[in-house]
Nucleic acid binder design. Structure first.
Lengths: 250, 250
DNA sequence: ACAAATTTGATTATTTTTGATTAAAAATGA
DNA sequence: TCATTTTTAATCAAAAATAATCAAATTTGT
């Protein structure tokens, strides 16, 4: 019984029962508790489950019932997959920027229990993270009711005062020919500002947005460091992206 | 049964029933009352429920203006009266500061339809005014989950960039001898900053807070221009306040 | 086959969680 | 108001879980 096999069984059990105990897993896997603990530590580090004292739980069960409607239900599975990958890039102690947008907001469930600092202009994200381990800094400025986010000059200046380890962006289109594009100037200016003040810029982008061009083209590939997308993306296309200097996680 | 599982069950029960007792939770969770109390303390610290003597309540039942709050229905009426008077001071085109606090947030219902600009650090106010005629500017900075508001140095600097016609404050105590007092330094510093950058400073204060002194005394009467209180206030006391240069609306 | 690297398990501190006991505080009711 | 009851806070001790350390077993590369 090697790690890969144990990992499968652990995740399967957690998925079925919602929560498990170290003791039971040790018996199930015919191994020692210390090994189970080591496995659980690895898996929780990868964001595949939530470690509790004495066992582990399904990630989704740990979320607080602060329901602030996330409008978009399309491509949920892909977005969750992308966000789970994204969460693996985040270490304890990190300071990260989170853009507004439906994809990025799905990242919350995976980072709730990390001791990190999140700087964001998205109100749904603020609500999701309120009362969790995460320390939240809200970008100030004009409220954009339609997008439930903060925008405007003051917001840009607020961002400029901070420096983050990583920025997670969720924009509306990316194409080889024209770079990054957004649905509005407001979103474009926020994304640009976040990118400028982060060491590493990560784009969370499901495959449907690849080679799409939205209303406003506002930046080139240079702005990005990493692109995280889902498995349904065209592999040949991703190779071309990689040749442009982008690191791809898929 | 670990903390995460208990937390889930507690929040679920509170959500369903609106309020719960420590005893019942102890039995439900098959644990001791002291453990339940510790859990409730943690959860209320995170702003996920409201701790009562002997149990806990849903946050929304305590704070939300739409649903009635059992104990303070009478005080609610007084707060509404105060806010209705306050709204008469607001003209179309005004730029106003709104402090966080339960009294001030009741003002929202009276200003929803006005074409004004509101600058605030209170998240409940932001949600009330989102999508209304009012244009909202949210003060940025550190999120204080307990008070559902923004605080800190950056918030103070944000405020300093604006100039408002009027500031509406809701603080925890006012007394002839010691001036204004607040429940925390954070709230005090925000109130001070708002007052400094407004032409007119208006205190919304139900009669129960007159001649009360809260944790921190932070400013004198000079800071205020107008005090709006309810009819149950001591008239002689109000005369003394007036002699100190305060305009009283009652 | 052999040495190096990895994985696993046992032992031991250390930390976290829990519950019992006490004193203090708050609600209740006359 | 005051006394009674209930609830809570504080302190400590026990139990459980974990981390750390080291040694044995296994795998891997040459």
């Amino acid at each position: 019984m090697n790690y890969q096999l144990r990992k499968q069984l652990i995740l399967q059990t957690v998925e079925e029962k919602g929560s498990v105990e170290v003791k039971d897993l040790a018996e199930l896997l015919q191994t020692s508790e210390i090994t189970v603990r080591r496995d659980l530590a690895t898996l929780s580090e990868q964001g595949l489950l939530y470690r509790t004292h004495g066992g582990a739980m399904k990630m989704s069960l740990v979320q607080a019932p602060t329901s602030f409607a996330n409008k978009s239900t399309s491509r949920m599975a892909e977005k969750d997959y992308i966000c789970q990958k994204a969460s693996q890039l985040i270490q304890e102690g990190d300071v990260i920027f989170l853009d507004c947008g439906s994809t990025v907001s799905r990242l919350c469930q995976f980072i709730k229990h990390k001791r990190i600092k999140v700087i964001t202009n998205s109100l749904p994200i603020v609500y999701e993270l309120m009362g969790t381990e995460v320390s939240v800094n809200l970008i100030g400025g004009e409220l954009d009711a339609e997008r439930q986010a903060i925008h405007g000059t003051i917001a840009l200046e607020h961002i400029a005062r901070y420096q983050a380890n990583k920025a997670f962006l969720g924009i509306d289109g990316i194409s080889l020919a024209r770079g990054l594009s957004a649905a509005s100037e407001k979103e474009a200016s926020i994304a640009t500002a976040l990118a400028q003040h982060a060491q590493e810029v990560i784009l969370l982008c499901d495959a449907s947005k690849l080679e799409k061009e939205a209303y406003l083209q506002f930046a080139s590939f240079d702005m990005l460091d990493i692109l995280i997308t889902d498995a349904s993306a065209d592999k040949e296309l991703l190779v071309k992206y990689e040749q442009k200097g982008l690191k791809i996680i898929c």
